[in-house]
Design a protein around this nucleic acid. Sequence first.
DNA 1: ATGAAAGCGCTAACAC
DNA 2: GTGTTAGCGCTTTCAT
Lengths: 323, 323
Amino acid sequence: MSLVLTGRGDTARLSKATQQRVKEAAAKLNYVPNRLARGLRSRATRAITVVVPSLQNPFFAEVVGQAQEYGDEKGYSVNVMVASSVESSRRVLSYLAGRSVDGVLLGVDSEPVYDLIKQLLGRGVACATLQAGANLPKEVPNISIDLEAGGALATNHLIGLGHTRIGYITEFTNRTHRKYLGYKRALEAKGFDLRDRWFATGKNTMAGGADAMASLLGQSGLDRPTAVFAYNDLMAIGALRVLKEAGIKVPHDFAVVGFDGTSVGAFTNPALTTVTHQRNAVAIEVLFSMLEHAKKILRKYEVPISLTIRESCGASIGAFAKG
Amino acid sequence: MSLVLTGRGDTARLSKATQQRVKEAAAKLNYVPNRLARGLRSRATRAITVVVPSLQNPFFAEVVGQAQEYGDEKGYSVNVMVASSVESSRRVLSYLAGRSVDGVLLGVDSEPVYDLIKQLLGRGVACATLQAGANLPKEVPNISIDLEAGGALATNHLIGLGHTRIGYITEFTNRTHRKYLGYKRALEAKGFDLRDRWFATGKNTMAGGADAMASLLGQSGLDRPTAVFAYNDLMAIGALRVLKEAGIKVPHDFAVVGFDGTSVGAFTNPALTTVTHQRNAVAIEVLFSMLEHAKKILRKYEVPISLTIRESCGASIGAFAKG
DNA sequence: ATGAAAGCGCTAACAC
DNA sequence: GTGTTAGCGCTTTCAT
């Protein structure tokens, strides 16, 4: 009976007629298998969960969209859970350790949840992460990009355009994170200043980007940067907005670079120049190969980055910036 | 044993000491309950799923975020599934009928899935919908807004600003949907033209909004509209982008109104004037009261709408439009 | 106040 | 090729 419904009637040993008969009966009775019972017995749910810190961030919305398409193709259900803090990450991961899905794509990362990731693995849930820290349990493939190179790429683009006073806006208040390090490295390589006041923080949202940018603009004259590198596209969009409100024309008078290469950046005014990468596609494939073939998987994938040049930096530095 | 872990040790009849003992043992053994087994036995998973057509649409991303917060508070896990077509909606709803969650918040609607909604109900899964059609099974609360009034609200705002040639961009190719009807009603009430060529369609994405807007702009001179009402904020953002590329200044030379009142509209350049509503909050509350109290629930909730006036329409009609 | 047993709805393994 | 059985890991119920 269950052989038919599982779609393995052929490979097994059932006559077409019987299969037909079973299917009709199921349809007539409006039969729906109980996923819970099925998963409990067969130890497989054919479902995965993508865990993201926020869906407001178009980067993660895009990751989910891609996972969704890929899962549909492979016959997996994909669902999404959002974990916006360490506590909610713990909650979500504990939940997932309860074997409600076969695999987890982790878009959140923080050291204090690594114990739970180990637990997930221990319970047989496959795992892959997008950009995790160094202490990630070794069995988990980490699909990452070189954030430091990305920071340098963005900053060098700005430098190449003639900017010397380049700000940085981010959610992190510390100055040890890798995008910052790349930004710093690029600036120092040219002997440019790296002033404290060109570093501004805000929440990792459009509003937070606006806040951070506003604090950068609070500075006057030569102290004020002529360009800014934003932690991600989300914050860059906030920055663009504040610049517009301040009457500063981008890119004529100010340049902005984002990070993540989200497609929404093609629709901002001006369109956003941004550091692009394809972590998501790789991560999704890796996770599914773990599920389907229980394949030996590399521990670390470093996906290449590139710069998508759109409008927000212009080709050269404008009048305002020179002043 | 399970009494403790379910957190009902007190209400039952277990001594504090025993509870403590059990908890310690659980922690030591790294015990994680199997959700599948638990759900199977207790017929409740304390989880809900929000089904949305797309997460690129900030409106749905916001719905999910709110559901997430509310769920956290109530001790429910919330997950999200995306169903971008009728087939994938059927797939998702069938999946959900397998009792993997207690409740479903439906952000997708189409007549051909109503049989599956019935099935969900039949299997004891609570359901609430955001804006469903008239033939929705009667047991399902429908949290909706008056789309027609919304269309009229947007259009009248434009009319009030002096526009007479007002276009409409949407994903729907038919002219029977309610936002269109509202737009039409407003225009006809003033005796204004309602030309075929002012109606343009594109996919329900930023790119689709851009396509539709581009086809509107293909028209010359007096045939060209001076304002456009977009089906939603997503398409409006696409329209804004095309207008920018065409060198048409918004709001000086052209006006745009969106729909949904998403917060991203506050960050576009220019910031988007849009029809706002709060379906989501109400829907989430309704769904949870069904889950928690098995309360008798109204069949239909009509949530009020309003207009959020930002920049994209200006205060008056510009020079270009007059020409 | 506690331990033991039954069984949720399935599928895997085994007998025919 | 087809019917039967055991049991996945829990919670609920019943017996002590």
